[in-house]
Design a protein around this nucleic acid. Structure first.
Lengths: 331, 331
DNA sequence: TTGAAAGCGCTAACAA
DNA sequence: TTGTTAGCGCTTTCAA
C-alpha cells in the first residue's frame, strides 16, 4: 500500500490533519511543522490519493474528451489536433479521459469527471448532449453547432469557408464544379455542401446532383468518388474543378485524376478543407480552407474549466473564422 | 448530488448493504428484493460512484496510455492506431487516460490508475520506466525494446523490417541508397538505421554517411532532408534509392524529388515504413514496411489487464513481425 | 437472506 | 497552531 497522510503524521508526531494542512499550503501551521512534514513527505515519496480527496471535495480531477467515433470518419490529424488543444489547457492535477460514443452512452458515467468536452460530428449526437445536460454535467460542445439553452458551443464557420472556396473557383472561370463530400449525416458535410450550393447560386450556376458524391472523409473514399465522377462524365464534359470536404479526400481525388491522365490544375482544379499537414506536399500543393481545429479545442477546454470553476463565461457561443489558402492546385 | 445506494435503500425499505449486494449480482439476496432494488436503481438512473468503490477496493478502473510526446515526433496516424488498439481492449467500466512525458513525470500519480501502457519512443524514457517500476506500478512497454527484469514488452522487429527493405532495393540493382531517418534519439531511428546498415554490409556496399539525413519523422523534415541530399549530390552521382524511416518522410521526399524533375522509381526508388493510409495513394504508390501498430497496442493492453488481474502472462516478450509491401515506388 | 459496524484516505467543522 | 470528530459512497466482515 502507498504512503498516506497518517503514515506521515505518525512519523512526524503530529495529527493527520496537521499533515493535510501542511501539504495543502494552509498557513495555520508553523513553518517548522510544515517543513518537517514536507520533508518526510518527500522522503517517503508521498502522492495524495485523489480518489479519496475526490470523495470529500466532490471533484474528480478529470475531464473527458468524447468523440462521436474513434475509428471511422475521424481523421487522425483531426483527432490529434483536438487532443492537443485540450491537453494544453489541462491543469496540473487533471487527467484527460478519452471516450467515444460507439461504446454506448449508457456506459458513460458522469460522476467520474468534472466535465466533458464533446467533439460532436453529427446530429445523432444530440441524444448524448441531452443526456449529459439532463445529468447536470458540465458540458462544452465543439465542432458542431448545437442549439441548446445556455450551452457552450465553439465552432468554425464552415458554410462560409466552403462558400469562399467555391466562389474563388468560379472567379477563376470554373463552371462545372464537383463536390466530394463527407458522409451525409456528418454536420460538416451538411455545412460544406450548403456553402458549395450557396456559392453556385450566388453566381447563377446550376447545381448538378451527379457532380456531388460521398467520399466518406477518407483517402480511399475520395479516390473512389473521383473515379466515379470521371467515369460518369466520359461522354459529357468532365468537371473543371472539384471541391473536397476534407484534405484526405482531396488527396485521394488527386490519385484518381492522375490515373486518368488529367492535369491539376489546368484540366481540373482541386480544393480541400482543414489545411492539414499534407497540403503543402502534394504535387501540386493543395489549396484548402484552413480550419482552426486545435484552437477550437483549446477555447472549448478553457470554457469548460471556467464552467467547472464557476467563473463567468465571456462568450458561450464562439464561431471561429476559416481562411482560404491558395496553392498550386488551382489555376 | 447524484443518487447513492442509500437513496435506493431508503426507498426500497432495505439496508444499503442489500442494495450493494443486489447491484453487484451477489446471490445472497432474494429475487424479489433484487428486482425491487434494480427497478428503483433504473428509475433513478443510478450510477455507482467509482471513486468511492475505488477507495475500498483499491482499484482505479482506469488505465493510462503514456506517450513520450503528444506533439512532435508522434505522427497522427501512429497515435490514433495506438489509441484504437488499447481502447478496443478496455473493459466496460474502465477509463483510458492519455498522458505525455513532456508534462513532467513528477506529476504522474500512479495511484490514479491500475496500470500504464507506455508507448516508448526513446532511450531517455528509461527514467520513467524505472520510476514506474520503483512505484510498483503495473507497466507494459510497447514499441521500444527495453531490458528489465520481468517487464512486459511488445515490439516490432524494426531492424529486420528495415533490412528487408534495403536488401530488396539492392536486389533491384540500387547501389547508392540514401537513408532519411527519424531523430537520432528515437529508438525506431536507431533500429531502422541498423537494419539499413546491416543490409548494405551483407551486400558489400559501403556506408556513405553523407547519404544519411535526419528527417524528424515529419513530412516537412523528409522534404528538407531529400532536398539537401539532392543538393549535395549535384556534382556527384545522385542516389538511386532512398529508404525513409516512416511514410510521412517518404511523402515529403516525393515532393523534393518531383521538384527536382526526377522520376520515381526510375531515377530514384523510394521506400517508407509503417504502411499508413497514404501509401496506396501517393503517385506512384509508396512501397513500405508494414508495422502492426494497432495490434501491438492491443496485445500490450491485453497483457496489461492480465497483469492487473494477476493472471498468468503467456508471453511477456513479444516481437511482432514486419512485412515488406512492394508498390510502384520501386522498379 | 439481511443488517450493523468498521474503514478505505481524505477534508470540513469545530474544539482546545 | 493543533487535534478530534464526522463523513464523503462504497465494500468487507461478522452477527443475526
Amino acid at each position: 500500500m502507498l504512503v498516506t497522510i497518517k503514515d506521515i503524521a505518525r512519523i512526524a508526531g503530529v495529527s493527520h490533519m496537521t499533515v493535510s494542512r501542511a501539504l495543502n499550503g494552509n498557513n495555520a501551521v508553523t513553518d517548522e511543522t510544515r517543513d518537517k512534514v514536507l520533508k518526510i513527505a518527500r522522503e517517503l515519496n508521498y502522492r495524495p490519493n485523489l480518489q479519496a480527496r475526490s470523495l470529500v471535495m466532490n471533484r474528480k480531477y478529470s475531464i473527458g474528451i468524447v468523440f462521436s467515433t474513434l475509428l471511422s470518419a475521424t481523421a487522425p490529424s483531426f483527432m490529434q489536433a483536438c487532443l492537443n488543444g485540450v491537453y494544453q489547457t489541462l491543469a496540473k492535477d487533471y487527467n484527460l479521459i478519452v471516450k467515444d460514443l460507439e461504446s454506448g452512452l449508457e456506459h458513460f458515467n458522469f460522476s467520474r469527471v468534472d466535465g466533458v468536452i464533446f467533439v460532436s460530428q453529427q446530429e445523432s449526437d444530440d441524444s448524448f448532449i441531452d443526456f449529459a445536460l439532463s445529468q447536470g454535467a458540465n458540458l462544452v460542445v465543439i465542432n458542431r453547432q448545437v442549439e441548446r439553452e445556455s450551452l457552450i458551443n465553439v465552432t468554425a464557420d464552415e458554410v462560409a469557408g466552403a462558400a469562399s472556396a467555391v466562389k474563388f473557383l468560379i472567379e477563376r472561370n470554373c463552371q462545372r464544379i464537383a463536390l466530394i463530400n463527407g458522409p451525409a449525416k456528418i454536420q460538416s458535410s451538411i455545412d460544406r455542401r450548403q456553402g458549395y450550393q450557396q456559392a453556385l447560386l450566388d453566381k447563377n450556376i446550376a447545381i448538378v446532383s451527379d457532380l456531388i458524391k460521398d467520399g466518406k472523409f477518407s483517402i480511399q473514399g475520395g479516390y473512389d468518388a473521383m473515379k466515379v465522377i470521371l467515369q460518369e462524365s466520359k461522354d459529357r464534359q468532365i468537371p473543371d474543378a472539384v471541391f473536397c470536404s476534407n484534405d484526405e479526400m482531396a488527396f485521394g481525388a488527386f490519385k484518381a485524376i492522375n490515373e486518368a491522365g488529367l492535369n491539376i490544375p489546368n484540366e481540373i482544379a482541386v480544393v480541400g478543407f482543414n489545411d492539414s499537414d499534407i497540403c503543402q506536399f502534394t504535387t501540386p500543393a493543395l489549396s484548402t480552407v484552413k480550419k482552426p481545429i486545435e484552437e477550437m479545442a483549446r477555447l472549448g477546454a478553457e470554457a469548460l474549466f471556467a464552467l467547472i470553476n464557476q467563473e463567468a463565461i465571456a462568450n458561450p457561443l464562439q464561431q471561429l473564422g476559416t481562411e482560404l489558402v491558395i496553392r498550386a492546385s488551382v489555376r
